[in-house]
C-alpha cells in the first residue's frame, strides 16, 4: 500500500510543479514527473513478488507471473509522453525566441 501512496505523492509533486512554477521549462518538467508517476503506478499494479514473465511453454508450469498488460500500456504511454514533451519543448523554444523570457507571468499578450 505504501508504494501506491508514494506514486500518488510523486503525482502530486508533478501537479505542484505545473500549477505553481513560473518558469515554463519547470512546468514541462512537472508534466514529465506526473507522467512518470502514472507509469510507475501502472507497473507497480502488475508486479507480483518473485513473479516471472508470462511466457507459455509446455515443459513447465508458471504459477506466479507478473501482469503483462500494464507493461504494454506503459510502453505506449511513454511514446505518447515523448511526443507531448517534445511538442511542449518546441513551443517553449519558439516562445523564448518571441518573448525573450521563460517567465509565464511575463508571457501574457492574450487577455480576457
Amino acid at each position: 500500500m505504501v508504494i501506491y501512496m508514494l506514486c500518488f505523492v510523486l503525482f502530486c509533486i508533478g501537479l505542484y510543479g505545473v500549477l505553481r512554477k513560473r518558469n515554463i521549462i519547470k512546468i514541462i518538467i512537472g508534466i514529465g514527473i506526473m507522467e512518470y508517476a502514472v507509469n510507475l503506478f501502472l507497473i507497480v499494479l502488475g508486479y507480483r513478488v518473485r513473479g516471472r514473465a508470462p511466457i507459455f511453454s509446455s515443459d513447465q508450469q508458471v504459477l506466479n507471473m507478473v501482469d503483462p498488460l500494464p507493461q504494454a500500456v506503459v510502453l505506449t504511454t511513454i511514446v505518447i509522453s515523448l511526443a507531448t514533451t517534445l511538442l511542449l519543448a518546441a513551443i517553449a523554444i519558439r516562445i523564448y525566441e518571441k518573448y525573450k523570457t521563460f517567465d509565464i507571468t511575463k508571457i501574457k499578450r492574450l487577455r480576457g
Binding site: 515554463i24 512546468i27 508534466i31 513551443i91 516562445i95 518571441k98 518573448y99 508571457i107 501574457k108
Partner: peptide, 12 residues
Amino acid sequence: AEDLEAAFKYAV
C-alpha cells in the same frame, strides 16, 4: 507570439 502562447497554455 500569440499563437504560441495560446498553444502552450492549451497544451499544458
